[in-house]
C-alpha cells in the first residue's frame, strides 16, 4: 500500500500541491481527475520520484519512497510520462525492450523476452515491431509505449506489490481503444498485484473504471473515494463546473454530463 501523507509542493512562488493525502491499495486502479492546472502531473511526479522537493511523506509499506534506490525502484515501479519526444529513428522493438532495461545488464534473458512478447501481443502491435517509431501514428505510438511500460510493470513475483503510474495514457486514442486499454489495465493490475494510478480527463470513463477516484483542484484533494460516492457529492459538479447525473440502466451505473453553459 502507498500512503500519501499531507504532501505540499511549491515551484518557485507557486504552490502546486497543498496537503494532498490518499491511500493507494494493491490491485486497485486509482484515477486522478481534475481541471487543467490542478496539479495532477505534479502529484504523479512526486509519487514517481521525479520531483522530490515536497514536504510531507509518501510511504510505500511504511518506507519513504525516496529511500528506495533508483535502480531498485525502476524494477518495482513503471511510470509512463506524457509527450515522449524521440529525435532519432528507432525501431519499435528496441523501444519496447527498454522496459526490461532495469532487469538486465547486457543481454535480456528468456524471461525478459517472453514478457516483451506478451506485452506486444496484448496491444496487438506485432506488425509494427520492425517499423521506425517516428513514422507511426499517434495512437500506434501510444500502444507501443503501453507495451514498453507494461513490460516494466510486469510482476514476476506476485507476492510483491509493484507501482504503475500513467499520465494521460488515453488522450490520443479513439473511444474503442480507450475502453480496451482501461479494461486491459484493470485486468493487468489485478493479475500482477499492482498499485495503478493514472490521470485521465474523460470523467465518464474514470467513473466506470476507477476503484478509487481522486478529485484534485488547485492542488487540493477535493474528494477521494469510491466513484459513486465521489460523483454524488455536490463538490464534484462545482469543481468541474458541470452538472452531472447518475443514471442506472440494466443494473449498471452511467455518469451523464449535461451541458450547463446554456442554462
Amino acid at each position: 500500500m502507498i500512503r500519501i501523507e499531507n504532501i505540499s509542493l511549491s515551484i518557485g512562488q507557486r504552490e502546486i500541491l497543498k496537503n494532498v493525502s490518499a491511500d493507494l491499495h494493491a490491485k486497485s486502479v486509482n484515477i486522478i481527475i481534475g481541471p487543467n492546472g490542478a496539479g495532477k502531473s505534479c502529484l504523479l511526479d512526486s509519487i514517481g520520484g521525479i520531483n522530490r522537493n515536497y514536504s510531507g511523506e509518501i510511504l510505500w509499506n511504511n518506507v519513504p519512497v525516496n529511500e528506495i534506490k533508483q535502480n531498485k525502484r525502476s524494477t518495482i515501479q513503471a511510470y509512463l510520462t506524457q509527450n515522449i519526444q524521440i529525435q532519432f529513428p528507432i525501431r519499435v522493438r528496441d523501444i519496447i525492450s527498454t522496459g526490461r532495461f532495469p532487469f538486465y545488464d547486457y543481454k535480456p534473458n528468456s524471461i525478459d523476452e517472453e514478457i516483451i512478447l506478451e506485452a506486444v501481443e496484448m496491444f496487438e502491435i506485432n506488425h509494427l515491431l520492425e517499423r521506425n517509431y517516428l513514422t507511426l501514428s499517434g495512437g500506434e505510438k501510444q500502444r507501443v509505449q503501453f507495451a514498453r511500460i507494461f513490460s516494466q510493470a510486469y510482476n514476476t513475483e506476485a507476492s510483491e506489490e509493484k507501482l504503475l503510474i500513467l499520465d494521460e495514457p488515453i488522450s490520443h486514442l479513439d473511444i474503442h481503444f480507450q475502453f480496451e486499454f482501461l479494461n486491459k489495465l484493470k485486468a493487468f493490475t489485478i493479475k500482477h498485484n499492482l498499485i495503478s494510478i493514472l490521470v485521465i480527463h474523460e470523467l465518464s470513463l474514470a467513473f466506470e473504471f476507477a476503484t478509487q477516484l481522486i478529485v484534485l483542484d488547485e492542488g487540493r484533494t477535493i474528494l477521494t473515494g469510491k466513484p459513486k460516492d465521489v460523483v454524488r457529492d455536490k463538490l464534484f459538479d462545482s469543481t468541474f463546473k458541470i452538472s452531472s447525473t447518475l443514471l442506472e440502466m440494466e443494473g449498471h451505473d452511467f455518469l451523464l454530463i449535461k451541458n450547463s453553459m446554456n442554462n
Partner: peptide, 11 residues
C-alpha cells in the same frame, strides 16, 4: 533516446 526523465525512470 526516450528522454532524460524517461531514462531516469529506467534507472
Amino acid at each position: 533516446q526516450l528522454g532524460e526523465k524517461e531514462a531516469f525512470l529506467l534507472g
